[in-house]
């Protein structure tokens, strides 16, 4: 605090540090993260969950979920959904895999083309939403089922099976694997995907809070008409967000293709709701205009802990879905209560 501040305004109730902290969108998720971490550390049967060995496992789940959640969070702040983000993982993996195995393309070129292809799918999503005026929920649901059909249909037609295998024979496979699918920090063996995740969260946070584009994301999600009337390019902003979401899913598709050396046609289906859950747990409003990339990352970490924690507790992993359902409900409830209590926004 400077010593020459203007006299305090009597209209302002003092905002304490706690109140200011509670106003952050990700605070509910952070408290949830601590609770979940303690809970699974206590019920852990292997004795490794709370340490780095356990962390290497749950950060892997968190990262492969979280890379897409970063983009999904921005998209949700921008007021839209993408239900095709899960199946897009499979589509991208199959696309790259087929280019490498059936067309003898170099791995790096195939990866590059896959990102272009994913950007195209995202563009179609965004263009359709903006042009037809239909809810993105419907448009991307249609894209979800279309891609699901295409994934199976094309893979079966070309390979006569439901998977694409043999990627490791492509030129450049080893160098690509180092970048996308290697392990770091022995003996714990964290996955390199965790690095990708951290970097993307950092970039997204910077873009969201510090750049013009970030300002526009909040504006188009908060009030589309107000944004348009003040000269924000609403259409361009939203289409860009859809493209980023598809491309982030493509990154995860490529990571798992290089890890497993093959791709199942059904990969990624069902993940789309996990992404939305992570974003919502992280404090993104379903109605748009509010949230953070860090919140989405915390939401992903909670999901990673839940999946690994349940396995480490030697419970049947079928229970993870129940856990996800409960945590979603609890998080939304807590976030709503917090924002009502501390936000003080008249709407």
């Amino acid at each position: 605090m400077s010593t020459v501040t203007a006299p305090a305004d009597e209209r302002v109730a003092k905002t304490s540090v706690i109140t200011r902290l509670m106003r952050r969108p990700e605070i509910g998720a952070l408290m949830g993260l601590i609770v979940v971490y303690i809970f699974f550390s206590v019920v852990d049967q292997t004795g490794t969950f709370s340490g780095l060995t356990g962390a290497a496992r749950w950060t892997d789940v968190a990262a492969t979920t979280g890379i897409v959640v970063v983009a999904v969070s921005l998209l949700m702040i921008g007021g839209e959904f993408d239900l095709s983000a899960g199946v897009m993982i499979g589509t991208a993996g199959l696309f790259a895999g087929l280019l490498i195995t059936e067309y003898q393309m170099g791995v790096w070129l195939a990866i590059f083309l896959t990102f272009i292809f994913a950007a195209g799918i995202g563009f179609i999503n965004g263009w359709l939403v903006m042009t037809t005026g239909l809810p993105s929920f419907i448009v991307t649901l249609a894209m979800f089922f279309s891609l699901r059909g295409i994934n199976l249909g094309v893979t079966k037609a070309i390979t006569d099976t439901v998977r694409v295998a043999g990627v490791d024979e492509g030129a450049g496979f080893d160098s690509a694997r180092v970048v996308f699918a290697s392990e770091i920090i022995p003996p714990y063996n964290f996955k390199i995907a965790v690095v990708w995740w951290f970097v993307l969260v950092a970039i997204a946070t910077w873009v969201l809070t510090r750049t013009k584009f970030g300002n526009w994301i909040f504006a188009v999600g908060g009030d589309k008409n107000a944004a348009r009337n003040t000269g924000v390019p609403v259409r361009r902003t939203k289409i860009t967000l859809f493209m980023l979401t598809s491309m982030s899913a493509a990154l995860v598709g490529i990571i798992s293709l290089l890890r497993l050396r093959s791709m199942q046609a059904g990969q990624g289906v069902g993940e789309e709701f996990v992404f939305i859950i992570a974003a919502v747990v992280g404090g993104c409003l379903l109605t748009g205009g509010y949230g953070s990339a860090i919140g989405g990352a915390i939401g992903s970490a909670i999901i990673g802990m839940a999946f690994i924690g349940i396995a480490y507790a030697r419970w049947n992993t079928d229970w993870s879905w129940l856990f996800l359902g409960l945590i979603l409900f609890a998080a939304v409830l807590v976030n709503t209560l917090i924002s009502r209590r501390f936000q003080g926004v008249r709407r």
């Binding site: 909040f218 908060g222 008409n225 944004a227 000269g231």
Partner: peptide, 21 residues
């Protein structure tokens, strides 16, 4: 309707569409 976004801060609203960089 004032073309302001309620959840955004005053200064972000003020410069919306004309942000200084």
């Amino acid at each position: 309707d004032l073309a302001t976004v309620p959840l955004m801060s005053v200064w972000r609203n003020f410069f919306l569409g004309n942000e200084p960089t």
